[in-house]
Amino acid sequence: MDDQTRIEIEAAAFRRLRQHLLEDRPDAQNIDLMNLAGFCRNCLSRWYGEAAAERGIEMTKDEARETFYGMPMADWKARHQSEATPEQQAAFTESFAANVGRDG
């Protein structure tokens, strides 16, 4: 496989992951994704902004999130996210402590 084809396939897979997380499963809470997988939609938006910066395109955190989510973060949260339960918060704290220094 040539590099251009690989890049196109990787981009298509990313777009499908984004669609899955934003359209197919907006009910999956970011904190649950973090607790289970160690990354969430916010991580993906941050990685998007970092990739843009590597190419000389500066984006603020909010701009990267709005680009990824397709709307301002506050709108996404109001539509799809609920307050984390004490159990979710405790699991996040435990997971975060166990994974300090990892990229996520």
Rank of each mutant, 00 (worst) to 15 (best):
A12C: 10
A51K: 06
R55T: 00
F68P: 05
E23V: 15
C43T: 13
G104N: 08
M59P: 00
C43H: 01
H20M: 15
R18D: 09
A84Q: 11
D27E: 15
F96C: 04
P26D: 03
A90S: 10
E83C: 01
E63N: 07
A28C: 09
K61L: 06
D2R: 11
R65Q: 13
Q89N: 11
A12D: 15
D62A: 15
I31L: 14
L17V: 11
A64L: 04
T93L: 12
L17E: 13
T60L: 05
H80V: 03
A64Q: 06
L22Q: 07
R18F: 00
D3H: 12
A90K: 15
N42S: 12
E94C: 01
L22C: 04
D24L: 12
E23D: 14
M73N: 07
A11M: 10
H80L: 04
R15Y: 03
A91M: 12
L33S: 09
R18G: 13
L22D: 11
M34G: 07
D32G: 12
G104M: 01
V100M: 12
D103P: 01
R15F: 01
E83G: 08
Q88N: 01
A11G: 12
V100P: 00
A51N: 05
C40F: 00
G38I: 08
P26Q: 06
K61D: 07
A98T: 02
P26W: 04
I7L: 14
A28K: 05
E58C: 00
E63T: 10
R102D: 07
H20R: 13
E23Y: 04
A74H: 05
L44F: 02
T85V: 09
L33I: 08
A37R: 09
H20L: 14
G104K: 05
I7Q: 14
S82N: 09
R15T: 10
F39Y: 11
F96S: 05
F14M: 12
A90C: 04
M34R: 15
L33Q: 15
G70L: 08
N30D: 15
D32E: 13
D24C: 07
E58Y: 00
Y69C: 06
Q89G: 02
Q19M: 11
A11T: 14
F68I: 02
T85W: 07
A78E: 03
L44V: 09
R16A: 14
R25K: 15
I9A: 12
A74Q: 08
M71L: 13
F39H: 02
E23P: 01
A64D: 09
D24P: 02
R6G: 10
